[in-house]
Design a protein around this nucleic acid. Structure first.
Length: 464
RNA sequence: GGCGGCAUAGCCAAGCGGUAAGGCACGGGUCUGCAAAACCCUUAUCCCCGGUUCGAUUCCGGGUGUCGCCUCCA
């Protein structure tokens, strides 16, 4: 069975067929860089990074493009508030974005285009729309003639007349129709601006994505993705712009991730419940945050809370412990993994991911492997090849999800600790358990937890 | 008002025609000098009412609850 993906356009799961054999062209709408990213921004980054990793795992070459919106109203407002220029603010938060997503083990995109660096293409795009009658200039602004694009509403499955009720015209706008949207906005005095055939100004939000997709990926791409809220109007508008110009499908598959909620309600500034990644990863291991995000199918909403994250800490710890205990037992020994065992978990994992990237089920396979590994670990007759296979499974499969179970703590202990462990072993041999237990308590105070196993003492760092 | 998602054990979450994966927590047990880690066992009238079917958590209709988009918010 091949890969099936849920397509917002058709509201169905469809078999995935790339335009070009063995290659995937995908575009993911990126952030507006006027602040640190919140966990809602992190979800698409993590989810679609996982999609990308899975494609690569299956042998595809992925051209992954994700933009930075580095000029818009919010950046201009931030610029005024902070008395910094728009480029300065953008630069600062692009850097922060890379740090935060990097911590979540999100790989950099193949290309991260910026709106301000795509200006010639954006202006040319608008120009062609004006020439073909799909757009018109009005007092220095340029608007898209929405009704002229007959398929408008096909992505969000809304009829144009239903949409009309919700459309509004802002003060100062001069549209022919309330549904029309801005491609270019005339600069107000003092605002950052670029020269264009319609006077100084800056691009509207939707046009940058159309221009970037065209520039970096072509007229038709495989996958276009983003948060569910982007379905309308952002993606609908992108389709209108690109397809009225190119006369061909903009993207074959439209993927949208569900939102993150706090206490079962929307995370928003007005409610004051926004959680920044920047802050969250001070409290929780970023890997756990990524793991937690992936425990839920990407299209469904996720509720966030410390209690839920703490459960995830426990769950993820179980996986890490299994990996660590395998490594400890295998120590330095180099041996081939038993392929039959590896396949036993690889197969259901792939099956899960093939079903619209069902990471929840994929993670369940990881837990099955961990349990079986623990059993094998207790069984004295287990062969090195078998144990090596479990280690392989618990390395290879998590990596597809962007997770690493390998122990990353500092394994170097100072000589005093080393000596204490030795002393305790001596004491235990002599059945001087009070002495041994005292040493164990002492080390526990110092954050080192000892575990006795048939293969000798094993230690790990831990709090309490 | 238009469009859509969701409702499964104490909690989180898969499954989506043949009487329920996985995780966290709780309780009991095994192993251990004692622990730790681990393993085993235990825990579900799948929101309600109709319908289709030999059979429905799974499909259809209705209802209730809940979340969201229709405001350049991922």
């Amino acid at each position: 069975m091949g890969l099936n993906v849920y397509n917002t356009l058709t509201r169905k799961k469809e078999p995935f067929h790339p335009i070009e054999e063995g290659k995937v062209r995908m575009y993911v709408c990126g952030p507006t860089v006027y602040n640190y990213i919140h966990i809602g921004n992190a979800r698409p980054a993590v989810v679609f990074d996982t999609v990308r990793r899975y494609f690569e795992y299956r042998g595809y070459k992925v051209n992954y493009v994700s933009n930075f919106t580095d000029v818009d109203d919010r950046l201009i407002n931030a610029s005024k508030a902070r008395h910094q220029s728009v480029p300065e603010i953008a630069e600062q938060f692009i850097k922060a974005y890379k740090e935060d997503t990097g911590a979540l083990n999100v790989q950099p995109a193949t290309v991260h285009p910026r709106a301000t660096e795509t200006m010639p293409e954006i202006i040319a795009f608008i120009n062609k729309l004006v020439e073909s009658g799909f757009a018109y200039e009005s007092n220095g602004d340029v608007y898209f003639r929405t009704r002229k694009f007959k398929e408008y509403g096909k992505l969000s499955h809304q009829s144009i007349d239903d949409l009309k009720a919700g459309a509004r015209i802002q003060i100062g706008e001069d549209k022919e129709d309330p549904l029309d949207f801005a491609l270019w906005k005339a600069a107000k005095p003092g605002e950052i601006k670029w020269n264009s055939p319609w006077g100084d100004g800056r691009p509207g939000w939707h046009i940058e994505c159309s221009a970037m997709v065209e520039k970096y990926l072509g007229d038709t791409i495989d996958i276009h993705a983003g948060g569910t809220d982007l379905t309308f109007p952002h993606h609908e508008n992108e389709i209108a712009q690109s397809e009225s110009l190119h006369h061909q499908t903009m993207a074959h598959y439209w993927l949208h991730n569900g939102h993150i909620q706090i206490n079962h309600e929307k995370m928003s500034k007005s409610i004051g419940n926004v959680i920044l990644v920047h802050d969250l990863i001070k409290k929780f291991d970023p890997q756990v945050v990524r793991f937690f995000i992936l425990t839920v199918q990407y299209r469904h909403p996720i509720n966030f809370s410390d209690a839920l994250l703490n459960d995830a800490v426990q769950a993820f710890g179980r996986l890490k412990t299994a990996h660590y205990n395998l490594s400890h037992r295998l120590n330095e020994s180099e041996s081939a993994a038993n392929e039959t065992i590896v396949e036993k978990y690889r197969k259901p994992f792939i099956e899960a991911m093939n079903d619209d990237f069902n990471t929840a089920n994929a993670i369940a396979v990881l837990f099955d492997a961990a349990r079986d590994a623990n059993i094998a670990l207790q069984n004295e007759s287990s062969t090195i090849e078998e144990l090596q296979a479990y280690l392989q499974v618990l390395t290879e499969l998590p990596a597809v999800l962007g997770l690493t179970l390998a122990d990353d703590t500092d394994r170097i202990v100072d000589r005093d600790v080393e000596a204490l462990i030795q002393n305790r072993e001596e004491a235990r041999k002599n059945r001087a358990f009070d002495v041994a237990d005292a040493i164990r308590d002492q080390l526990k105070e110092a954050g080192i937890i000892l575990e006795d196993t048939p293969q000798g003492v094993r230690w790990k760092r831990g709090n309490v």
